[in-house]
Amino acid sequence: MSIKYNPKVIEHFKNPHNQGVIENPDAEALVGSPACGDQIAIYLKINNDVIEDIKFESYGCASNIATASIVTDLAKGKTLEEALSIKWTEAVQELGGLPPVKYHCSVLAVDGLRAAVKDYLRKNGRLPEEELSSDLVRGELYHVIYPPQGIDIVALKRVKYIGVDDGNVRIEISFAHDDPYLQEIVDEIKEKVSDLPGVKSVEVVNEGRGEE
């Protein structure tokens, strides 16, 4: 299978918009992890709950840079509420499509934006204290994309059980034991869930697929 970037992705990769750092930002966030390979930093200047300026930094591949460029374009001038409702699928659409194996890059860019907005709300005492629950964990799993299909693992019905007990989270998933993406999925679940408030440990158990 030949995987190629379309010209719009290449254009944003070569000449990314809103790239850089805001000195003394009103909010900032760094998302991603070295294990998964890509990381995005988002910086916000906020006035009257409107994103006046937004900048990003990226350690990642061409699609990581391009999606950060387009997501920051989408967020600029928007209210915080509007910014929180931007979906990763919009970013993909705006870029004229991405190879499914690269969808997780646009998820990361949107997660970065979301985390930065939440950072602002938290700093201003406006973020309701989130209590760790299985729903909160599920919310994170919507952002874990199964690369070959480009669909999140909740929608694919691969999440079988979420248990939360005194900060210890247990997640049971269903993938073939020799699925080549299994390690990537497990790493990403752990990375996303361990950032939730009150999480002490994350255990991911793969129960396999019925057909094995």
């Binding site: 970037y5 290449i10 990769f13 070569k14 998964c36 390979g37 890509d38 350690y59 990642g60 591949c61 061409a62 699609s63 990581n64 840079i65 990537e184």
Partner: peptide, 22 residues
């Protein structure tokens, strides 16, 4: 990150390989 370097080099008509997960 390596894939970005590889892509920039590719646009300059230079082929390399990378160890990046991307």
């Amino acid at each position: 990150e390596g894939e970005s370097v590889e892509m920039y080099l590719d646009m300059e008509d230079i082929t390399v390989d990378t160890g990046s997960a991307c």
